[in-house]
């Protein structure tokens, strides 16, 4: 079902936990669908020098959050905000179609954490304009056209 890379990140997730006194915390997802991600970041000189996650969800949700934190750690906020769910998917070597929303969740959790940081520190990032962490993440409806 999952690629080796997904399984590696699920079995050995990187950056699990929560940063004490984090500069920004973002939580997305909802209990109905069964996936919730919380990302906390520490920012120093506009660089995300620490990032941790906690995830309630399936294998691909855990793997998506794990790999996203790995990709973001050490990046500037500007760089981090360029991360898309497609980057997460590519880095994981793909996810089954019905699990693509897990990668979206990872992107949104990161953005939510940065938004929290921006709000707390009076910063403004144009990449976050119009972003709302409370919006329901898109879930793929399954249909088949033969």
């Amino acid at each position: 079902m999952y690629s080796k890379k997904v399984m590696d990140h699920f079995m050995n997730p990187r950056n699990v936990g929560e940063i004490e006194n984090a500069d920004g915390v973002g939580e997305v997802g909802n209990i109905r669908c069964g996936d919730i991600m919380r990302i906390s970041i520490r920012v120093h000189d506009d660089v995300i020098d620490d990032i941790k996650f906690k995830t309630f969800g399936c294998g691909s949700a855990v793997a998506s959050s794990s790999i996203a934190t790995e990709m973001i750690k050490g990046k500037t906020i500007e760089e981090a905000l360029k991360l898309t769910n497609k980057d997460v998917l590519d880095e994981l070597g793909g996810l089954p179609t019905i699990k693509v929303h897990c990668s979206v969740l990872a992107e949104q959790a990161l953005k939510a954490a940065v938004l929290d940081y921006a709000n707390k520190h009076g910063k403004h990032y144009k990449e976050l304009e119009g972003f709302s962490p409370d919006e329901d993440h898109p879930h793929d409806e399954h249909e088949l056209e033969a």
């Binding site: 079995m11 069964g34 399936c58 294998g59």
Partner: peptide
Amino acid sequence: IEGESMLLLLDAIGVSASSGSACTSG
């Protein structure tokens, strides 16, 4: 906790089981 994660970790120690979580109910 979520069911599919449980199934994957059980599988890793050789146990085949099932769950009624959203991810496994399709």
